[in-house]
Amino acid sequence: MWCIPPKQDAAFVCAMEQVLSVYKRAFDPDYPVVCMDETSVQCVKEIRPALPGRPGQTERYDVEYERNGVAHLIQFYAPLMSWRRIDVADNHAALQWAQGVRTLVEQDFPEARRITLVMDNLNTHTGASLYKAFEPEVAHGLMEKLEFVYTPKHGSWLNMAECEFSALSRQCLNRRLADMETVRKEVDAWTTTRNRSATTIEWRFATEDARIKLKQLYPAISN
């Protein structure tokens, strides 16, 4: 369900139209568009062995379980290339995000002239995090190859990476996973399969649609 402001919000529509303009760009390997998002997964250990499945009945698990930490997922998704990478860590600190961005620039797209990174405006999603994590020369070099585009507040649904996380939750994370290593293994397998099959998102919401369907968000202009 979309979460949007109830009425006129110039800041929202400005950020929204910027994101939608990015999504209309033609594919250019020198200037890839990458959507980035984060989420968390509760690791859960079984207290009792599961009851094996039988004909006509699936495997059954006890209602009791043991919490076993939280796995943090950081996703980088290039929609026009049907490519995604998901890092699994034990925290969502600025340094973890910075390392993911460095991998994106130096390993995933080393030949790109500039990468447009679409993400929410969490306080760790800034160039400052790069300077906290790396020497100034490295941080500056990364910033030279990045363009940050932020989704508006209450507009996370505009991030295509969130759509990918929704699919991941339904297809991979909709069961108990005992520990971080299990989460990492399952997520890696899901990501590899999805990349190989070149699964894409068919994004149909454009600026023209926004100006009609979300007309109440646009400030009234008096002539």
Rank of each mutant, 00 (worst) to 15 (best):
L95V: 07
R170L: 13
Q8L: 04
I4K: 07
K213D: 10
K153Y: 06
C35N: 11
S40Q: 14
R113V: 07
Y31L: 01
Q18T: 14
A128F: 01
S82H: 10
T207H: 09
Y31W: 01
P29H: 06
R48F: 12
Y131D: 05
D28I: 03
A11P: 02
K153V: 09
A10R: 13
W2K: 10
V118A: 08
L51T: 13
E66F: 05
E208I: 02
N195Y: 14
R184E: 08
G56Q: 12
G127D: 01
S222W: 14
H154C: 10
A15G: 00
A15Y: 08
Y65A: 15
A139N: 09
M119T: 14
C43S: 06
H140M: 09
E186S: 07
E186V: 09
V13M: 05
M81C: 03
A189V: 00
I221G: 07
L73C: 02
R211E: 03
E162C: 04
M160L: 12
P6H: 03
K132A: 07
R48S: 11
V44K: 02
R102P: 09
R84F: 06
V187H: 10
R211L: 05
Y218Q: 04
A26Y: 00
V149I: 15
P6Y: 03
L130G: 06
W83D: 05
C163R: 08
L130V: 06
M119Q: 14
M1W: 08
V70N: 10
W157G: 01
I4H: 02
A50R: 13
R84C: 13
T58P: 07
A220S: 01
H72M: 04
V19I: 06
L122G: 07
P79D: 05
L158I: 01
A98R: 00
G69M: 13
L104D: 05
L130I: 01
D37H: 15
Q8H: 04
S222M: 03
G127Q: 00
A89P: 12
E135S: 05
T103A: 14
A133C: 03
T116K: 03
N223R: 05
L158H: 02
S197W: 06
K24Q: 11
E147A: 11
K24N: 11
E66C: 12
V33Q: 01
L104W: 01
L214G: 02
A15H: 00
N123D: 12
A98Q: 11
C3G: 11
T207Q: 10
L168S: 04
A161K: 00
T116M: 11
N223W: 11
V33A: 00
R84V: 05
Y31S: 04
A94I: 04
Q171Y: 06
I4Q: 11
P136W: 02
T182C: 12
N174W: 09
W190E: 06
V41M: 13
I74P: 00
R67M: 10
T116Q: 01
E186D: 13
S40H: 09
V44F: 05
R102Y: 07
P5G: 00
K145H: 03
D37P: 10
V138I: 11
L51N: 13
T191Q: 15
Q107Y: 04
H154N: 15
M180D: 02
